[in-house]
Amino acid sequence: MPYLVDIDPIAFSIGPVAVHWYGIMYLIAFAAFWWLGERRRRAGRLPVGPTAFSDLAFYGMIGVILGGRVGYMLFYATPELLADPLSLFRIWEGGMSFHGGLLGVLVAMWYWSRRNGMHFFDVMDFVAPLVPIGLGTGRLGNFIGGELWGRHTDLPWGMIFPRAIDTAGHSIEQLKAMAAAGQLAAEARHPSQLYQMLLEGVLLFCILYFVSMKPKPRYLVSGLFALFYGLFRFGVEFVREPDAQLGYLAWGWLTMGQILSLPLILLGVVLLLASRSAPTLQPRVVADPVPGKKS
């Protein structure tokens, strides 16, 4: 019997303030990024002090939020943006794009790299293994919120997402009863959010973290991130429901997510080839300068 996904998107409330699970997922992602990144920095994998690393984490957070929102509006909601430019700022209505967030992070890391005199791809090789945790928690947030569901399926792990069907005025309790009676079996869909959580979150993290445990040539870790994320996202799009406002863009199956993933796959291949003759950044522990002391 297909499971009906009915999880309260609000984790808890403090007076009039409701804390959503999706926001908690972002906090977990940023906390994990900082904690794991600081551990790797202390091991000498990023030759800067803790203050500079804190700046990197802050810039990355801003890049994710701004880039994710702007990217979504440009890639997936252009007509809405042109008709109402202020919709760009209505983040509470939902709408974040990974590819836009990635571009935001790239810009933020480029700026940080210039300020700190480091090679851009040495920084990206350090950052890449920290990103999948956020990708995984983000997809879990999508699942809890019952959004970005997959296409219809008759596989035994198919799930029913109330927001994906015409409820026709039925309450959630009525929908549960209908699901238990098997009346909604035809509405079962792939839990594509969980597929992405496992592939782009868990598996991608394991690959990148294992590879980067020891210093690797410049471009290698970034290239693996771009290649595998692009491949995972391109593949999952075959079972993920395309955005309603866009649908399929060509051939009855090509989606915007797949189009945006192709450049990542190509970039990954190029970076992996470039890594074959690139230098390797050696570990070097750096502390913040002592105030008033000349170096």
Rank of each mutant, 00 (worst) to 15 (best):
A287D: 01
L246H: 03
S222Y: 07
Q196R: 05
G257R: 01
L272I: 11
Y3C: 11
Q245W: 02
V127H: 02
V107H: 02
H119E: 11
L36P: 04
G292W: 06
G145P: 02
A226C: 14
Q196K: 05
S275E: 07
W110V: 09
E173K: 13
E237F: 03
D122Y: 11
D8W: 09
W149N: 03
A11D: 08
P129D: 06
W34A: 15
P132G: 06
S192M: 00
L194E: 03
P291S: 11
K293F: 09
E93W: 02
V131M: 10
P291N: 07
F234I: 06
A168S: 12
Y195Q: 02
L102N: 00
S97G: 11
D8Y: 10
K293W: 06
Q193N: 09
S277G: 10
M124Y: 04
R90L: 13
L27K: 05
L260Q: 00
V123E: 07
L4T: 13
R45A: 15
P129T: 08
G49T: 08
I24Y: 08
F238R: 00
L254V: 13
P242W: 00
S277H: 12
F58N: 01
F75N: 02
W110I: 06
T167M: 15
R39Y: 09
L260K: 01
F161Y: 11
G136T: 11
L272P: 02
L140T: 10
Q282M: 15
V127R: 00
M256A: 14
P263K: 03
S277T: 13
T78E: 11
P279I: 14
V290Q: 07
P217F: 11
V285H: 03
G60Q: 03
V286Y: 03
M213S: 14
W35F: 13
G141S: 06
E241V: 01
T78G: 10
I28P: 09
P47D: 10
D8I: 14
E38C: 03
G63P: 04
P16G: 15
A188H: 04
Y229C: 01
V131D: 02
G60V: 06
P217D: 11
R189D: 04
S295W: 02
M213L: 14
T280R: 07
M25K: 02
A31P: 04
Q193G: 09
R69C: 08
A226H: 06
T255C: 04
W149Y: 08
V239A: 01
V105W: 01
A108I: 10
R284N: 12
K214F: 11
A77K: 06
I28Q: 05
G100N: 07
L36A: 08
V202N: 08
W253Y: 08
L224M: 05
R45H: 13
